[in-house]
Structure formats: structure tokens, C-alpha cells
Design a protein around this nucleic acid. Sequence first.
DNA 1: TTAATTTTCCCCTTTTAAGGGGATACCTAT
DNA 2: ATAGGTATCCCCTTAAAAGGGGAAAATTAA
Lengths: 208, 208
Amino acid sequence: MIPVLIVEDHPLVAEGLKSILSNSSEFAIHGLAVNGAAFKQLFETFKTGVILMDIRLPDTSGIELCKHAVASGKPIKVIALTTFNQQYLIKEMLDAGAISYLLKNATPDEIREAIRLAGQNQPMFSKLVKQQINQLSDKAIVLSKREIEVLCLIAQGLTNTEIAEKLFISQLTVDSHRKNLLLKTGSKNSAALIKFAVDEGYVKSRND
Amino acid sequence: MIPVLIVEDHPLVAEGLKSILSNSSEFAIHGLAVNGAAFKQLFETFKTGVILMDIRLPDTSGIELCKHAVASGKPIKVIALTTFNQQYLIKEMLDAGAISYLLKNATPDEIREAIRLAGQNQPMFSKLVKQQINQLSDKAIVLSKREIEVLCLIAQGLTNTEIAEKLFISQLTVDSHRKNLLLKTGSKNSAALIKFAVDEGYVKSRND
DNA sequence: TTAATTTTCCCCTTTTAAGGGGATACCTAT
DNA sequence: ATAGGTATCCCCTTAAAAGGGGAAAATTAA
């Protein structure tokens, strides 16, 4: 019996997970956390096993919770289970110590298999996630903290002058950041840049 | 027993739906369609009842399927069940004849209640969807076909000149469309415009 | 303590977008 | 038939972004 802790705020998905795991005697559901606070409480009594971790949560991020879990030193494995297949998030999640990364369109079989594998310390990734990871090693687009900061302000419609005022730096500096953003992301202009930013998860869409 | 037809391509969500409906003797699951083709086939033998309809599907849109179902003249009710709460999609779906619109973070109780109500020809909407509908009547932002066309090309990074060439119209016309887009959406510049466009579902994000 | 990267700042020119107008032809639905 | 919106095209000016450099501090990592 592999103990499983589910972190998932969507009732329907949580229900689906419970359903596909409870039919088998292989897995023992330790509990369901619908937010970060609930997770931390449930995690205290979780000695070993696999954590199915959603990333976008009401009060915090699955990335933070993953770090928290890994830092505890307990023999646990974290499997990310989310709708987002952005390089950015995948990298953060793996850096945080997750062993596997599945998309929410995964089949029940895939999820069960991922849990089994995690128990044997073996990773598993959705097909699309694998592609992203391959591209990661190839020529990863790495934006600096400041660049992401500027990017988000651009997405809000601020001009370089306004951004400069907001960040207490010269407009010329913002100009540079903007130019580097276009260069790094390969975008032709602001419009394409923002499209890219939303696609890659640098700027959150209202629907994410 | 209310017959229910589920149209849902995410296995986990489908599993969740089956689980919350099969525990009760109130509902009879007629079948699960994971795409438009499967739906049309299952729908042929579906005489009456409620359809839980996802919007984004692999081969088609739930909006089209909803129109198809309503056009059949059968005594059926369509409930939209999706992650998207964009005004644009809500309007399209309701225009297509859906009676209710729920978001995928709905609770099992809410979903069961929505099905019951639909059986009595009564609508039900998620809280956030209600807000969107209220705003719809207030001051709906309605973009014309051509404007949406231009908007998508702007999101791809094309300049007005390039868009003009592509659409075989004058650059000045594209200029006008762009100005109207900024005006209608209340955006200050292209960056904010594209952010808005993705948020509202006019431009599809890779993750939608 | 180097080396590498990031952040900061500056020069220049050209292109594009934004902001302010207006106007005509074309659908489409009442 | 006429009104409302759409789509088209045109004028003007100013503001902002894009594209091309370069370079000195400040961090951060090796």
C-alpha cells in the first residue's frame, strides 16, 4: 500500500483522483488538501509516500509546498499534477524537488503508474512535458528577475517612462530591459512579447 | 432517474463526474464522449435528459455541439462545464442554447443541483459566471469579426503594414481597427490589448 | 578573487503606434 | 426605407517603441 496525499483545489479533479485510487488496494489515500494551509497540517502526520501536487492553489503555490515537503527530509516523493506545461513552471517545480510532472489530461493508468514509479524513485513525465524538458536543455530562454518584473509591468500597459518611475530607475534602463526581452524571447514587438509571456507563464492570465 | 450524457476530454474530470453521479440513484449516465465525433454518435440514442458539456474539445467546440443538440429538437438540456469564465465564451454558449454554465471548480453538490434544475428547465450559474453575465448586459465589449481578426494578427506580432498586406486592405484601415480596438477595450497600448485579448479568450493562449 | 551575469545608464536613428479628427460605402435588421 | 453598426479609407501630430550600438557599477557564482 502506497500512502498518497492529494493536494488539489478542484473538487471534480479531486473526486476523480480519489475514485481512480480507491478502486485499487495498491494505494492508501492519506488525505485531501484543498489549499496550502490544509496541506501543511496533513503533511505533519504524513510519514512516507507520494504527494500528488497541484500547482495553482488558492492561497499559495504547489512549488512552495513542494519545497516545504522536500525540506522536511521525510522519505516522500512529489508528483506535480497540473494543467500548465510551461517551461518556466516545469523548471521551477523540478528544481523544487518534484520527481514527476503530469498534465491533468493524463489517464488514470498513467497516474497510477506514475505513483508506482515514484515509489521506486523513478520519474515520469507527460509527453508534452518531456518535449518542454528537452527544449530546456537545448536553448532555454532565461529571463532575469528584473526582466520578469519589467515584463509584467509592460503587460499591464505601462510605458517605459511609467515603469521607470515605478521602479525608481532611469527610463533608459527600462528601455534596455525591454530590448533584451525582445531579443531573448525572439519577439518582434510588445504584442508578440506579451503573447509569449502569457503562453510561457511569466504573466498570469486571468484564467490560469 | 435523469439521463445524463457527459462530454469531457479530461479523463480525471470525467472520472470525477462519473463518481459523483453514480453514487446516487437519481442519475443514469447514458455515456461519456471524449470528443465531438463520439458525442454525435452517443447523442443519436439519447432521447431526453441533461448534457454536461465541456467547451474546449480535441476536435471541435462545445459551442458547436450545443447547437447541434439543440437543433435536434429533442427535449434535452445542455449544461456548460468548463474552466473558462470569459464573457465571450459564456455569451456564445448561452446563445447556442445552453441553459446553465458552471466552472470546473464547482462542487459535486452544485453539479448535481444544476442537473436537477436543468431537468425542471431552470438555469444555474457559478458565482463568477453570474458576475460576467451582469457585466454583459451593462456595457458589453463587442468586437466585430474583422476586429477580432486584426487582434489575432497583432497578437502574432504583425505590424499594421503586414496585417494590411495579409488582409488585402489599406494600412490606414488596419490603423483604424487598431484604434477602435484600443478604444473599445479601454487598453492604453498593444501590450495591454493583447493581455486583455488572452484574458477574454479572443486570442487563445497555448494553455487554454 | 576572478569571472560571469545582471543591472544600470547612455548615445544615435528609424519605424511604428497612439491620439485627434473626419468621411464614404456596405451590410443588416427593423 | 432608414437607422445602426461595420468596414473601408484619409488627414494631421506627437509619443513611444524598435534597432543599432557601447559601457560602467553591482551582484552572484565559481
